[in-house]
């Protein structure tokens, strides 16, 4: 039995992509396999780890808990869309580099998207708010201290720019 394919238009990082996918294609898999945007990482695939977090109309959501067929009519932002217009690192990316906020980097795309949205809502977080901002993302390398520092550094960089 061949599975029915559904035509879907995904708008990702301001580019429209027309793809045909089975209904069960997770958005995380569509981004990686159908669009070739492998910056979004797939960890637990049941919404716990946060590695696949993307922005949907600016709000962080788990791409592994969305179906591609259901992600129509929205603007999606992945980690590939977080750089500045000139291709240089965006403020959150720059802060991660400066603060050593990553080691293996697997979880990093999910942190970057989550923090980008978090700082948009709260541009000057307290230390506790910075911790709260990343509470839904797991990192198994860093112990989080440098990620929290990166949130605070990104807030400073964002205020300067």
């Amino acid at each position: 039995m061949t599975e029915e394919l559904h035509p879907v238009r995904l708008v990702v990082n301001e580019t429209a992509y027309d793809i045909r996918v089975p209904a069960r294609r997770l958005l995380s898999d569509a981004l990686r396999q159908d669009l070739g945007l492998t910056g979004t990482h797939v960890g637990c695939e049941h919404g716990v780890c946060g590695a696949c977090t993307i922005l949907v109309d600016g709000k962080p959501m788990r791409s592994c808990l969305l179906f591609a067929v259901s992600a129509v009519g929205v603007e999606i932002t992945t980690v590939e869309g977080l750089t500045n217009a000139d291709g240089s690192l965006g403020p959150v990316q720059q802060a991660f580099a400066e603060c050593h906020g990553l080691q293996c980097g697997f979880c990093t795309p999910g942190f970057l998207t989550t923090i980008t949205a978090g700082l948009r809502d709260n541009p000057d977080p307290t230390h506790d708010e910075a911790r709260e901002m990343i509470a839904g993302n797991l990192c198994r390398c860093t112990g989080y201290q440098n990620i929290v520092k990166a949130v605070e550094r990104a807030a400073v960089l964002g205020a300067e720019s």
Binding site: L26, E45, G47, R62, L65, L66, F67, S70
Partner: peptide, 20 residues
């Protein structure tokens, strides 16, 4: 889908159809 999709992915549920 934040409860349903994990159930589907873990194949604890396998409905014939989803009405979105």
């Amino acid at each position: 889908g934040q409860s349903l999709v994990p159930l589907l992915s873990m194949r604890l549920a396998a409905p014939s159809a989803l009405v979105d």
